[in-house]
Design a protein around this nucleic acid. Sequence first.
DNA 1: AATGAATGAGCTTTCATTCAT
DNA 2: CATGAATGAAAGCTCATTCAT
Lengths: 204, 204, 204, 204
Amino acid sequence: MQGKDGAGAVSDGSADTARAAGPRRADARRNQETLLDAAAAVFVKAGVDAPVRDIAARAGVGTGTIYRHFPTRADLIIAVYRHQIEALAEAEPSLLASSPTPYAALARWINQFVDFLVTKHGLAAALRSDEAGFEALHAHFLDRLLPVCTRLIGEAAAGEIRPDLEAYELMRGVGNLCIGAESDPRYDARRLVDFLVAGLRRPS
Amino acid sequence: MQGKDGAGAVSDGSADTARAAGPRRADARRNQETLLDAAAAVFVKAGVDAPVRDIAARAGVGTGTIYRHFPTRADLIIAVYRHQIEALAEAEPSLLASSPTPYAALARWINQFVDFLVTKHGLAAALRSDEAGFEALHAHFLDRLLPVCTRLIGEAAAGEIRPDLEAYELMRGVGNLCIGAESDPRYDARRLVDFLVAGLRRPS
Amino acid sequence: MQGKDGAGAVSDGSADTARAAGPRRADARRNQETLLDAAAAVFVKAGVDAPVRDIAARAGVGTGTIYRHFPTRADLIIAVYRHQIEALAEAEPSLLASSPTPYAALARWINQFVDFLVTKHGLAAALRSDEAGFEALHAHFLDRLLPVCTRLIGEAAAGEIRPDLEAYELMRGVGNLCIGAESDPRYDARRLVDFLVAGLRRPS
Amino acid sequence: MQGKDGAGAVSDGSADTARAAGPRRADARRNQETLLDAAAAVFVKAGVDAPVRDIAARAGVGTGTIYRHFPTRADLIIAVYRHQIEALAEAEPSLLASSPTPYAALARWINQFVDFLVTKHGLAAALRSDEAGFEALHAHFLDRLLPVCTRLIGEAAAGEIRPDLEAYELMRGVGNLCIGAESDPRYDARRLVDFLVAGLRRPS
DNA sequence: AATGAATGAGCTTTCATTCAT
DNA sequence: CATGAATGAAAGCTCATTCAT
């Protein structure tokens, strides 16, 4: 599984390191996380082609630091992609704990998932020449998040939402709704996702 | 195609309604329509790459007839595309008349619209080399159907659905949901469209 | 001689009429000639198996008209065969008149003869089951053209070409050179006929 | 795959052996060669259906010897065919050496080639039921002789003959001229081949 | 009598699958 | 196992032929 994890065409070094759990020293890892959080936020707002300067500014570092950790933009996108996947995977318990109902937790998770989709769709463009790499990252995405979404749906399925909803189908549907959303001001994907999520509720 | 229809010799008065497109002779135009109806139905079920034989069989004609009218598959897809657009445009009054509520009419129209999307997405693939042609057909699509969908939403907006819903956004959303649906058995686009349409209703 | 003229296996009627002098009315005969000219031209270019549509198109008529005059392909081939033989027979004086030397006239006649051979060879295939019919048509061919070719050779024999050349031998040789030429792109029969005709000249 | 060598339907044994290098013992091979030379000569004069007695007589052996080596006539024809091909292939240098000009060498080679064609055409009849076998032998013929003829043409092309002459076309043309020559006393194929070869010369 | 749209058998090509090496 | 030849089902496309107009 090592050699086919999809980072093939991308420069190694820090990107590869980031893939596991980040740098060894705690402070270094914290820096890295800050940086990825910042990049993720900027990606959500301005797309994966956002200026490096903006990301650096939001992270409170110099642009050189970004390039030190992620030599190419693809490296950065991949790292953010993994980072957001981790965040989505780890968000489950806290969402369930802090939401009034399981359905509300699912809705909030989907909202965070939409943020991630900017990165995911950008990834496809960034790795256009590396089909295998993209496939591997996509597989990682499914491996990690399908179980999470399935559990969230399961919690809500008890009474709030329509039965027989499949996590794959929901995630794909939300993913589809977000295609091309960045470039079209007349199309607000998030609104439509809200409609879709609303439509999951059982008719009262 | 001999005895396909016992009353074939009797010309159908209603079909004589003057129309811009179509062959001159009345029977030829009726044949053409039969053929396009059949092709549309097959496209919905089996995609735009469905065997010509299947389309011919459903239309009750020989394969040669298809090729005579539409020398290439792109020609056929384009004709079906226009035909379905017309059908969608003309369906409005009857849907409104025969549905219990305007919302139901909209929902049924969207359902028919999903059928059309198979053709629309197939069109993109068929005209991959003809960007300009595709743009023109897409423009025609918007010109013709945006007003229709806007009116249907307007009817329903009075009380049944959430306000401020834009026809463009809805059609784009439904269109997006149907991307790649043919090739993925785990993904039922129509189900998700139903969820989306359900989500348009005002919370009671 | 009537009943064994070689059209035995072929449907009778108009084909038989055509054999003599064509239809009675002048315009009908002209139509017939137009049609045979067209068929001959198409045969030369695309062989005796050329689509009926192509012949009809070149003659400016519908396909049905071809079938009315020549119910089977064999009928058509036979008619073209006779038609071309007549043309070859009648070409003699004008060729002699319009060519600088008798040898040039012979060369041009042979060139036209090569056109005819496509039909002649096609005839054999078309009448495979009717040996007697083929023999009769072949005899007609010899009866009509051997004298013509003999005269042309006679004119040229005075000084331009080798003595003792027999028309039969020359025509057979040219005929042989054209066997199987249609199906083999690497073999240009007309080129070789040109060589052969060139080889008839007396060494200077 | 047995029949790859083209003699599939035909009895094996000496025919197959002959293909490689002939019998082991030198004297036996010399006998074989004498026999094939004789058969070739008889074939040229009297066709491939010549009586075995005649061949045996010319080879100075008894008829039993012929049957011992070549159980069926097809075996014999195939062996002669291969033998003549070898002879034609090996004749090149000596012809070039002993002829006044390359063109003369080519003309003499073509003359010998005409001898061979009697066998070649007879082969087609003998193997009528073994299409694959004939194809294979024909392929062998082309493989072996096309290069030889190409070289001879190349030698002569310098100045004596018309440019752009293809070996395939020439050999096919000569082959065609010899079709049906045996059975028609009014048709002297060799004479026509001479004309054709004469026509290859550049006009002086 | 002429036309050409319609038909569908059949030819060609493709391609998934199998099987032998 | 890996390879790639062999197979044949499936589909595209052509064109001879018919027949309603």
